[in-house]
Protein backbone atom coordinates (compact mmCIF):
# COMPACT_ATOMS: atom_id res chain seq x y z
CA UNK A 1 0.00 0.00 0.00
CA UNK A 2 1.26 3.46 -0.82
CA UNK A 3 2.16 5.73 2.09
CA UNK A 4 1.37 9.32 1.29
CA UNK A 5 2.14 12.64 2.88
CA UNK A 6 -0.75 15.07 2.73
CA UNK A 7 0.46 18.68 2.79
CA UNK A 8 -2.10 21.28 3.87
CA UNK A 9 -1.08 24.71 2.69
CA UNK A 10 -4.03 27.04 3.27
CA UNK A 11 -6.24 27.47 6.27
CA UNK A 12 -9.66 28.83 7.23
CA UNK A 13 -10.67 29.05 3.60
CA UNK A 14 -14.21 27.67 3.86
CA UNK A 15 -14.33 26.22 7.36
CA UNK A 16 -17.53 28.00 8.35
CA UNK A 17 -19.54 26.70 5.40
CA UNK A 18 -18.02 23.24 5.45
CA UNK A 19 -17.88 22.97 9.25
CA UNK A 20 -14.52 21.32 8.63
CA UNK A 21 -11.29 21.94 6.83
CA UNK A 22 -11.87 20.00 3.57
CA UNK A 23 -8.36 18.56 3.44
CA UNK A 24 -8.25 17.54 7.11
CA UNK A 25 -11.69 16.01 6.59
CA UNK A 26 -10.85 14.02 3.49
CA UNK A 27 -7.71 12.67 5.15
CA UNK A 28 -9.84 11.32 7.98
CA UNK A 29 -12.21 9.79 5.44
CA UNK A 30 -9.39 8.20 3.42
CA UNK A 31 -7.83 6.84 6.62
CA UNK A 32 -11.17 5.25 7.41
CA UNK A 33 -11.08 3.69 3.94
CA UNK A 34 -7.70 2.15 4.71
CA UNK A 35 -5.25 4.79 3.53
CA UNK A 36 -1.78 5.03 5.05
CA UNK A 37 -0.99 8.69 5.41
CA UNK A 38 0.60 11.43 7.46
CA UNK A 39 -0.03 15.17 7.38
CA UNK A 40 2.21 18.20 7.10
CA UNK A 41 0.95 21.69 7.93
CA UNK A 42 2.64 24.37 5.88
CA UNK A 43 2.31 28.15 5.67
CA UNK A 44 -0.93 29.51 7.10
CA UNK A 45 -2.10 25.95 7.82
CA UNK A 46 0.29 25.76 10.81
CA UNK A 47 -2.32 27.88 12.60
CA UNK A 48 -4.49 24.78 12.74
CA UNK A 49 -2.05 23.39 15.29
CA UNK A 50 -2.78 26.14 17.81
CA UNK A 51 -4.59 25.03 20.95
CA UNK A 52 -7.83 26.46 22.22
CA UNK A 53 -9.43 27.87 19.06
CA UNK A 54 -13.17 28.32 19.25
CA UNK A 55 -15.25 29.02 16.16
CA UNK A 56 -18.60 28.60 17.89
CA UNK A 57 -21.28 31.27 18.03
CA UNK A 58 -21.64 32.12 14.34
CA UNK A 59 -25.14 33.10 13.29
CA UNK A 60 -26.69 35.14 10.49
CA UNK A 61 -30.13 36.47 11.25
CA UNK A 62 -32.14 33.64 12.73
CA UNK A 63 -29.85 30.88 11.49
CA UNK A 64 -27.19 29.83 13.98
CA UNK A 65 -24.39 27.37 13.35
CA UNK A 66 -24.73 24.47 15.77
CA UNK A 67 -21.73 22.43 14.57
CA UNK A 68 -18.78 24.78 14.19
CA UNK A 69 -15.51 23.47 12.81
CA UNK A 70 -13.36 21.92 15.54
CA UNK A 71 -10.03 21.50 13.81
CA UNK A 72 -8.21 20.89 17.11
CA UNK A 73 -10.39 17.83 17.73
CA UNK A 74 -9.88 16.68 14.14
CA UNK A 75 -6.11 16.83 14.45
CA UNK A 76 -6.23 14.99 17.77
CA UNK A 77 -8.44 12.37 16.15
CA UNK A 78 -6.00 11.96 13.27
CA UNK A 79 -3.18 11.50 15.73
CA UNK A 80 -5.18 8.96 17.75
CA UNK A 81 -5.62 6.95 14.53
CA UNK A 82 -1.88 6.78 14.05
CA UNK A 83 -1.50 9.62 11.58
CA UNK A 84 1.51 11.76 12.37
CA UNK A 85 0.82 15.48 12.02
CA UNK A 86 3.79 17.74 11.41
CA UNK A 87 4.15 21.52 11.22
CA UNK A 88 7.00 23.35 9.54
CA UNK A 89 8.96 25.03 12.32
CA UNK A 90 9.92 28.12 10.34
CA UNK A 91 6.29 28.75 9.40
CA UNK A 92 5.30 28.41 13.05
CA UNK A 93 8.00 30.87 14.17
CA UNK A 94 7.17 33.34 11.39
CA UNK A 95 3.69 33.63 12.85
CA UNK A 96 4.97 34.39 16.30
CA UNK A 97 3.88 31.04 17.65
CA UNK A 98 5.73 29.17 20.35
CA UNK A 99 5.89 25.40 20.69
CA UNK A 100 3.80 25.76 23.85
CA UNK A 101 0.99 27.29 21.77
CA UNK A 102 0.64 24.11 19.74
CA UNK A 103 -1.15 20.85 20.35
CA UNK A 104 1.08 18.22 21.95
CA UNK A 105 0.33 15.86 19.09
CA UNK A 106 2.03 18.11 16.55
CA UNK A 107 5.59 17.31 15.60
CA UNK A 108 7.83 20.11 14.39
CA UNK A 109 10.01 19.71 11.33
CA UNK A 110 12.56 22.13 9.93
CA UNK A 111 12.60 22.98 6.22
CA UNK A 112 16.11 21.61 5.90
CA UNK A 113 14.81 18.21 6.97
CA UNK A 114 12.06 18.10 4.36
CA UNK A 115 13.90 16.42 1.46
CA UNK A 116 14.88 13.46 3.58
CA UNK A 117 11.44 13.50 5.21
CA UNK A 118 9.67 13.42 1.84
CA UNK A 119 11.75 10.44 0.77
CA UNK A 120 9.94 8.32 3.37
CA UNK A 121 6.72 8.53 1.40
CA UNK A 122 5.62 6.94 -1.85
CA UNK A 123 3.74 10.05 -2.83
CA UNK A 124 3.33 13.65 -1.69
CA UNK A 125 -0.09 15.23 -2.16
CA UNK A 126 0.05 18.99 -1.77
CA UNK A 127 -3.41 20.54 -1.37
Amino acid sequence: MKKTLQIVTSAYRCNSEEQDDPVVWICQAMKGAGADLDMLLEGTAVNYAVKGQDASGLSFGTKAQTQPPRIEEDLKRLSAKGIKVYAIEEDVAARGLERSDLLEEIKGIARAELPKFFAQYHQIWRW
Partner: peptide, 18 residues
Protein backbone atom coordinates in the same frame (compact mmCIF):
# COMPACT_ATOMS: atom_id res chain seq x y z
CA UNK B 1 -13.06 9.76 -0.53
CA UNK B 2 -12.81 5.96 -0.56
CA UNK B 3 -13.07 6.10 -4.36
CA UNK B 4 -10.26 8.64 -4.46
CA UNK B 5 -8.07 6.39 -2.37
CA UNK B 6 -8.89 3.33 -4.50
CA UNK B 7 -8.15 5.27 -7.68
CA UNK B 8 -4.88 6.50 -6.27
CA UNK B 9 -3.84 3.00 -5.21
CA UNK B 10 -4.58 1.76 -8.72
CA UNK B 11 -2.67 4.63 -10.38
CA UNK B 12 0.96 5.10 -11.20
CA UNK B 13 0.78 8.58 -9.76
CA UNK B 14 -1.63 11.15 -8.32
CA UNK B 15 -1.57 14.90 -8.76
CA UNK B 16 -3.56 17.17 -6.48
CA UNK B 17 -4.27 20.68 -7.67
CA UNK B 18 -5.79 22.41 -4.71
Amino acid sequence: PADLWKASEASDNTLVIG
